[in-house]
Amino acid sequence: MKKALGMLLVFMLILGVLAACGGNTETAAPSGSDATEQQSENTNDDATKPTFESRTIALGHATSDSENSHYHQGALKFKELVEEATDGQVTIEIHPNGVLGGEREMIEAVQLGTVDMVFTSTGPVGNFASKSNAFDFPFLFRDREHAYKVLDGEIGEEVNQQLESAGLKVLVWAENGFRNITNSTHPIKTPDDLKGVKIRTMENKIHLDSFRQFGADPTPMAFTELFTALQQGVVDAQENPLSVIIPNKFYEVQDYLTLTGHFYSPAPLIINKDLFDSFSPELQDVITKAAEEMRDFEREFIYQQEQEYLKIAEENGMEIIQADEYDFEAFFEAAQPVYEKYADEYGDILDRIIATE
Results as ranks from 00 to 15, higher is better:
Ala4His: 14
Gly6Ala: 15
Gly6Tyr: 15
Met7Thr: 12
Phe11Glu: 05
Leu13Gln: 03
Gly16Asn: 13
Gly16Met: 13
Ala19Gly: 13
Gly22Phe: 13
Glu26Trp: 15
Ser31Val: 15
Gly32Phe: 10
Ser33Lys: 00
Thr36Val: 14
Glu37Phe: 11
Gln38Glu: 12
Ser40Gly: 07
Thr43Arg: 13
Asp45Val: 14
Thr48Ala: 02
Pro50Gly: 04
Ser54His: 15
Ser64His: 01
Ser66Cys: 07
His70Glu: 15
His70Gln: 14
His72Thr: 02
Gln73Ser: 09
Lys77Val: 05
Phe78Arg: 11
Lys79Gly: 13
Val82Trp: 09
Thr86Ile: 02
Thr86Phe: 01
Thr91Gly: 13
Ile92Ala: 06
His95Phe: 15
His95Asp: 10
Gly98Gln: 01
Arg104Ile: 10
Glu105Pro: 04
Glu108Val: 13
Glu108Asp: 12
Val110Trp: 02
Gln111Thr: 02
Gln111Cys: 06
Gly113Leu: 10
Gly113Asn: 09
Phe119Asp: 15
Gly123Cys: 04
Gly123His: 08
Asn127Cys: 01
Ala129Leu: 06
Ala129Phe: 07
Ala129Asp: 08
Asp143Glu: 10
Val150Tyr: 05
Leu151Trp: 05
Asp152Thr: 07
Val159Asn: 07
Asn160Pro: 02
Gln161Lys: 11
Ala166Cys: 04
Ala166Asp: 10
Leu168Val: 08
Leu171Tyr: 11
Trp173Pro: 05
Ser184Ile: 01
Pro187Lys: 06
Pro187Val: 08
Asp192Glu: 14
Asp193Trp: 09
Leu194Ile: 10
Lys195Arg: 14
Val197Tyr: 07
Arg200Pro: 00
Thr201Lys: 00
Ile206Asn: 02
His207Ile: 01
Asp209Ile: 05
Phe214Asn: 03
Pro218Asp: 05
Met221Pro: 01
Ala222Cys: 08
Phe223Arg: 04
Thr228Glu: 10
Leu230Trp: 00
Gln232Glu: 14
Ala237Pro: 04
Asn240Glu: 00
Pro241Gln: 01
Ile245Gln: 00
Asn248Arg: 08
Asp255Ser: 12
Leu259Ile: 03
Thr260Glu: 00
Thr260Leu: 00
Tyr264Thr: 03
Pro266Phe: 03
Pro266Asp: 03
Pro268Gly: 07
Asn272Val: 01
Phe276Trp: 12
Phe279Trp: 08
Ser280Cys: 05
Leu283Ile: 10
Asp285Ser: 14
Thr288Glu: 12
Ala291Tyr: 07
Glu293Ile: 12
Met294Val: 05
Arg295Phe: 07
Glu298Val: 06
Arg299Met: 13
Arg299Phe: 13
Glu306Val: 03
Gln307His: 11
Leu310Asp: 04
Leu310Gln: 05
Leu310Arg: 06
Glu314Ser: 15
Glu314Pro: 05
Glu314Gln: 13
Ile320Lys: 06
Ile321Lys: 05
Ile321Cys: 07
Phe331Glu: 00
Ala335Tyr: 03
Glu340Phe: 09
Tyr346Pro: 06
Asp351Phe: 09
Asp351Asn: 15
Arg352Pro: 01
Ile353His: 09
Ala355His: 09
Glu357Tyr: 07
